[in-house]
């Protein structure tokens, strides 16, 4: 039996911790709650501060769905985000393996250069990229959205750090058994680091999902664009359509919410491990 005052102290500290966490969770959840509630309010109530709509309505959803080709844009967003994530992970895994496996002349310089590209703002390379995409005839296509983003310096750097932690003796042992580099990468390293790779993949997915400016530049028709461009249509300096915007945002959040529910564990890990974004 512990000392009762110690138990009390422990209980008090636990209560305090929980209270703090509940308050923080409230801060995180409330904007989402407000989004959903506003989406269910008629236009006249949008600016009221009541926590529940006085008259529930789905009009905003109907209006959002009819104003933009939402189904198509959501599919495009999903396609682009998944394809971009998959290709970025693939190129990053190859690069990270190469940097870990071989210490060649100039490898430090090459790694440094890749790191530097991460620091170059998108606006600097946007026009040259756009000219190339136009030259290839990929404007207004999903290829135009995905291909310039198939490699990510951020992913290479993150994965390099992960791969470095993998025991070299295991790789050497696999080589002694006659395994090729390809086989070592996919049969020895990949299965063991899958959780870390998945975590980085989730961060890449979120970045791709939120991208606005590149789709804006590359696509012209709404049917060929992504969801973020559609959401912008409800915002204007001459008055935003808040109810409709919140309905569209709620619908746009659903796929990511489902993904989150499925991959909850990895997402939390990725934020803890990545310490970024």
């Amino acid at each position: 039996m512990g000392n009762p005052s110690g138990v009390r102290r422990g209980l008090a500290s636990l209560t305090l911790k929980h209270a703090a966490l509940i308050a923080l969770s409230f801060l995180a959840v409330f904007p989402l709650y407000w989004m959903v509630v506003t989406s269910l309010k008629p236009e006249a109530e949008v600016f009221t501060s009541s926590l529940l709509p006085a008259h529930w309505t789905l009009d905003n959803y109907v209006s959002a769905w009819n104003s933009i080709p939402m189904g198509r844009m959501l599919l495009n967003s999903l396609g682009v985000a998944f394809a971009q994530t998959a290709t970025q992970l693939f190129t990053a895994i190859l690069a990270a393996y190469a940097f870990t496996r071989w210490e060649f002349r100039g490898s430090g310089l090459l790694y440094g250069l890749i790191g530097l590209t991460w620091l170059v703002p998108f606006q600097v390379i946007m026009i040259p990229n756009y000219i190339v995409i136009s030259g290839l005839g990929w404007r207004d296509t999903l290829l135009g959205l995905i291909v310039p983003n198939i490699a990510s310096a951020f992913a290479v750097m993150q994965l390099f750090n992960t791969f470095k932690s993998f025991p070299k003796t295991l790789i050497e042992a696999a080589h002694l058994d006659g395994a090729s580099d390809w086989s070592v990468l996919w049969r020895t390293i990949f299965p063991n680091l899958r959780a870390s790779i998945a975590s980085i993949g989730i961060l890449l997915f979120i970045t791709a999902w939120n991208d606005y400016f590149w789709p804006l530049l590359v696509t012209t028709k709404l049917e060929n664009s992504t969801m973020q461009k559609g959401l912008q249509m409800f915002i204007s300096s001459e008055g935003s359509m808040w109810g409709t915007l919140m309905a569209a945002t709620t619908l746009a959040s659903l796929p990511v919410l489902v993904l989150y529910l499925v991959l909850q564990r990895q997402i939390i890990d990725s934020f803890v491990k990545g310490g970024l974004r």
Binding site: G79, T141, L142, L143
Partner: peptide, 13 residues
């Protein structure tokens, strides 16, 4: 899903 996305690209192109 990547495969699906690639198919979507194809039809779009």
């Amino acid at each position: 899903l990547s495969l699906l996305a690639t198919t979507a690209c194809g039809s779009n192109t």
